[in-house]
């Protein structure tokens, strides 16, 4: 299986490294022709505004939307979660997403960099150390979206930080920054191969 990683900006190399550790082939995707060769796709962490702008400039938005709609397994971390959201709160004015997951995502929901944190959470009955950097959270989800992990903030409220809707997976946190490939393996074994 060939997994493309959108390589316009952000930590795409770390995702490629995680893919290699899982024994799959990863390629950098900057053009629609490269996307065409992929069986699955990852949207990395980075600045969602910059990634969306570059995608628009290079006519990638429609090809990516079309592949997501036609069932290509796709995983987004942090900025990637924002890009997979059907609806945004606190986005930059006019900020575009690829969409696909029936959810509302709040950008920079946990705050600025001073509020970035590490925490242990439960992911698919696996204990996972997760890194959140200026991270978004999921504000609300449609009925077809499964919430996999949540984080409880100091006000006692619980917020989804990992969600799945059929062939689409999104996390607020960055598994690619840790040595634990559990999320990438889940994407490859459960999300990609169940199709």
């Amino acid at each position: 299986m060939k997994i493309g990683v959108l390589a316009l900006q952000g930590d795409f190399r770390e995702h490629l490294h995680a893919i290699a550790l899982c024994g799959e082939e990863g390629i950098e995707v900057r053009r629609a022709s490269e996307l065409d060769t992929c069986d699955a796709f990852i949207l990395p962490g980075g600045e969602s505004t910059a990634i969306a702008l570059l995608a628009r400039n290079y006519d990638l938005i429609e090809p990516i939307r079309a592949r997501i709609e036609s069932g290509m397994p796709t995983y987004g971390s942090c900025a990637g979660m924002i890009l997979l959201a059907d609806r945004l709160v606190d986005g930059a004015p006019g900020q575009q997403t690829f969409g696909g997951i029936d959810m509302t995502v709040r950008r920079n929901a946990f705050g600025r960099q001073v509020d970035s944190f590490e925490s242990t959470l439960s992911f698919n009955s696996h204990s996972l150390h997760a890194v959140f950097i200026r991270a978004p959270w999921v504000e609300d989800v449609g009925s077809s979206v499964e919430v996999i992990s949540t984080v409880t903030t100091s006000d006692g409220k619980s917020h989804p930080v990992a969600v799945r809707q059929s062939h689409l997976l999104a996390t607020s946190f960055h598994p690619e920054l840790t040595q634990d490939q559990a999320v990438h393996r889940y994407f490859i074994d459960e999300v990609c191969k169940s199709r």
């Binding site: 900006q9 952000g10 962490g45 980075g46 925490s119 409880t152």
Partner: peptide
């Protein structure tokens, strides 16, 4: 659930997100 802020990993990780950018 404990949340740790200001760690070397979140500080360095923040810069990872800027890579390939201006």
């Amino acid at each position: 659930m404990s949340q740790e802020t200001g760690t070397a990993r979140v500080k360095r990780g923040m810069a990872e997100m800027l890579k390939g950018g201006v």
